[in-house]
């Protein structure tokens, strides 16, 4: 853009063509799409994109998806959970294979964002696919090689539903100040040592940071989990202004 035009109107977020380079099966219902996106402007961890699909007959549908990759990663990655009654997610988490194309634009959202410049401690609470934008933060933290104290409480239905399970294990094995507590609400494998119930006050208090440390807190998941965790943290003395939330209802933001 010529400098003379850079003054007045904000630049429109352009639709870019994404080409899928790899499809990673995360769980039976969740896939990550690794993409090549020429002219991608970069993003901050926690931001999302709008995806637009165009069928052969010209029919279009668009939805918002969180970015899973760190800004430092060579490729943009979205992680998509299949919502059976949805129109876009069954395609993205079902039919897409390497070489397929769709459009996206972004990055969108500047509030539910954490970078190492914001320091910490960093306190993350996720339910189900709510882990996705938080994973971008953890990947960014690891890529930046900072030892900002970080804790994640991650609630999944079953062991097989834990998204990024191996990578989360590897991140914790770096012993760089990240602690992860998993809880499984529906069933647990033999010998399971993590939580065995929904996220509750005791879990938030024992696995989190005390309010005196003023953790930067990000909560993402189903509405009920987010409402519960956010109000519990406030009861425990955490300032509302330090608690940022994103809610994934059955259709909210995804589908």
């Amino acid at each position: 853009m010529p400098a003379t035009e850079a003054v007045a109107a904000p630049r429109r977020l352009e639709w870019l063509t994404a080409t899928v380079t790899d499809v990673i099966v995360e769980t039976p219902r969740v896939k990550s799409l690794v993409q090549d996106v020429p002219r991608w402007p970069g993003h901050r961890p926690g931001q999302h994109v709008d995806v637009r699909l165009t069928g052969e007959d010209g029919y279009q549908a668009q939805r918002s998806y969180s970015i899973a990759s760190a800004p430092e990663a060579a490729h943009l990655t979205l992680t998509v959970e299949r919502i059976e009654e949805g129109e876009v997610s069954p395609y993205l988490a079902g039919e897409v294979r390497p070489g397929d194309q769709f459009e996206l634009r972004g990055p969108i959202g500047g509030y539910f964002v954490w970078t190492v410049a914001a320091q910490g401690p960093l306190f993350l609470i996720a339910g189900g696919s709510g882990i996705v934008p938080l994973m971008a933060m953890l990947r960014h933290r690891a890529a930046a090689s900072v030892a900002v104290p970080a804790r994640l409480i991650y609630s999944s239905r079953t062991f097989g539903d834990i998204i990024y399970r191996d990578e989360l294990d590897r991140l914790m094995a770096r012993r760089d100040g990240l602690e992860i507590v998993h809880t499984l609400t529906r069933s647990q494998p033999a010998g399971w040592s993590g939580g065995m119930r929904r996220i509750d006050r005791e879990m938030v208090a024992s696995a989190g940071f005390p309010s005196s440390q003023r953790p930067r807190t990000f909560i993402c998941g189903p509405t009920q989990l987010v409402e519960y965790a956010a109000s519990t943290l406030q009861e425990l003395g955490h300032e509302a202004s330090l608690i940022k939330t994103e809610r994934f209802g059955p259709t909210g933001g995804v589908g």
Binding site: R52, L53, T54, G55, Y59, A61, Y91, V96, E103
Partner: peptide, 29 residues
């Protein structure tokens, strides 16, 4: 725009066209 191979509408029309703005879809919840 690039065609997304194999993508098609699941249920259309998505409500009365004159009440659903471009890029939107209907929800019940």
């Amino acid at each position: 725009p690039p065609i997304s191979r194999g993508f098609r509408a699941r249920k259309r029309p998505d409500g009365p066209a004159n009440r659903v703005p471009p890029g939107q879809h209907l929800v019940n919840d």
